[in-house]
């Protein structure tokens, strides 16, 4: 049981690391949204799955409800993260930002 919890947590940390490094390394704002919006979402999914498993060690009704509440967080994040990403992209498009292409590379 503990092994799976550790596995999920480490997978989540790897995805979070990818998101943080991607935000630093990517060349422009549109391509920065790719790691920021989505690697973080999958990181939250993996880590919360690990927490829910860890919480279910001694099985009881209240702990089951807690785990369901954690999955509610995942559900909400999966709904809200594309919406937030889309609203940021929309603001960028309306402000007239050009996107980075290969010719911009020196």
């Amino acid at each position: 049981m503990n092994f799976f919890v550790l596995l999920f947590l480490i997978i989540g940390l790897v995805f979070f690391t990818g998101g943080a490094v991607g935000i630093i390394r990517m060349p422009d704002f549109y391509s920065r949204l790719h790691p920021a919006g989505k690697l973080d979402t999958l990181g939250i999914l993996a880590m919360v799955l690990g927490f829910a498993l860890f919480n279910l060690k001694t099985f009881s009704i209240s702990e089951l409800l807690l785990s369901i509440k954690m999955l509610l967080i995942v559900f909400f994040v999966f709904l809200s993260s594309p919406t937030a990403t889309h609203s940021i992209v929309d603001a960028g498009i309306r402000a007239g930002l050009r996107h980075w292409t290969k010719e911009d590379k020196r």
Binding site: I23, A36, G43, M47
Partner: peptide
């Protein structure tokens, strides 16, 4: 400004965890 917004969003999603 939108880059800052991305940074704030990423910090917030880590704060939940």
């Amino acid at each position: 400004v939108l880059d800052r917004l991305i940074g704030v969003n990423a910090i917030g999603s880590k704060t939940v965890i």
